[in-house]
Amino acid sequence: MNDMTQALKHKNAFIGFTVAGYPDFEKSAKYIVDMANAGADLIEVGIAFSDPSADGPTIMNADQKVLAKGTTTEDVFRLMTEVRKHTNVPLVFLTYTNPVFKYGYEKFLSKMKSLNIQGIIMPDMPLEEQEVFLNIAQQYGRAFIQLVTLQSGNRLAKIVSHASGFIYVVSSLGITGSQNELSNEADKIVTSIKELTDIPVAVGFGITTYDQAKLFSSADAIIVGSALVRIIEEHPDDATTYLTEFIQKMKGARNATNQND
Rank of each mutant, 00 (worst) to 15 (best):
A221T: 07
V76W: 01
T73M: 15
F101E: 08
N260S: 15
R155W: 01
K102P: 00
R155I: 03
E82D: 11
N98C: 08
N180S: 14
L173W: 01
A29T: 10
E131K: 14
T73W: 04
Q139R: 15
K113T: 11
H162M: 11
I117P: 02
D51L: 06
I222Y: 07
A253D: 08
F108S: 02
L8H: 02
S178V: 13
P23R: 01
T71K: 08
E131C: 03
G206T: 05
D41R: 00
M122T: 11
P236Y: 04
L67T: 06
G174F: 09
P99V: 05
T71S: 10
M122L: 13
F93I: 04
I175G: 00
A68Q: 12
G153C: 03
F108V: 05
E185N: 10
L42M: 14
L94C: 06
S178L: 12
I189H: 04
Q259I: 13
E181G: 04
A239M: 02
G165R: 02
D41Q: 07
M60T: 11
S164C: 06
D211Y: 09
L228M: 10
D3G: 11
R84P: 05
D24H: 12
A219N: 08
T208W: 01
V76M: 05
A48F: 03
I247A: 01
D24V: 08
K194W: 08
T58G: 04
A239F: 00
L134F: 12
T244R: 04
Y168I: 03
K69C: 03
T241Y: 05
F93A: 03
I43G: 00
M80V: 09
L8S: 01
S152D: 07
I232G: 02
Q151K: 11
K27G: 03
E233W: 08
S217N: 14
A54V: 05
A256R: 09
K251T: 13
S28R: 05
N258L: 10
T58W: 05
K111M: 11
Q130N: 10
